[in-house]
Amino acid sequence: MFEVIDLKGPQLPAISFRLGAGELVCLSGPSGAGKTLLLRALADLDANSGRVVLDGVPRPQITAPLWRRQVAYLPAESRWWAATVGEHFPDVQQSLLTELGFAPDVGSWQVERLSSGERQRLALARMLANQPRVLLLDEPTANLDPENIGIVERLVTEYIRVQQAACLWVTHAPEQIARIADRALYLDAGRISERKAA
């Protein structure tokens, strides 16, 4: 359902792969191999060339804002532009936050007082509120404690299963790959290769 053919950027070598519906694929590789650049190119944040197809529709046929809602990128560090949590979520989606285990008054929480775990879970919720078809997660649990790692992993795997979405999850932890991945890809020296998920 998500097809990438010869995707290339200024510092990104040509890369091809595909993700199936309901599939969670982990991506690893040495730092500097271009994992973040790959995710950014897929979300169409940097200039790039090549063919990317979502559910049979080539990227140029979808407007950029709509594309980024459907092919959603979660950077390693989340950014917030307003003072309270609620300002980052359109009104109708407040219910989603309660479903995700946040207190009903979460909308009025101050962003700067959030713990790193809360920040990351809220960033994920903010992204999932758009109901993306493809999730591009850049080390989403790197700064989290085991409990929050578990919450994020459950949230994502559940979403993918229910929505039949696809996910490319960058991680360096072999035990995490073993826990969540259907498949594992390895990016190094401009080549992407299949690795057996343990």
Binding site: A43, L45, A64, P65, L66, R68, R69, A72, Y73, L74, P75, E77, S78, R79, W80, W81, R126, M127, N130
Partner: peptide, 13 residues
Amino acid sequence: RETIEARLILGHR
């Protein structure tokens, strides 16, 4: 730039 992109990522124009 990161804040601007955080909004682009969410599908803001």
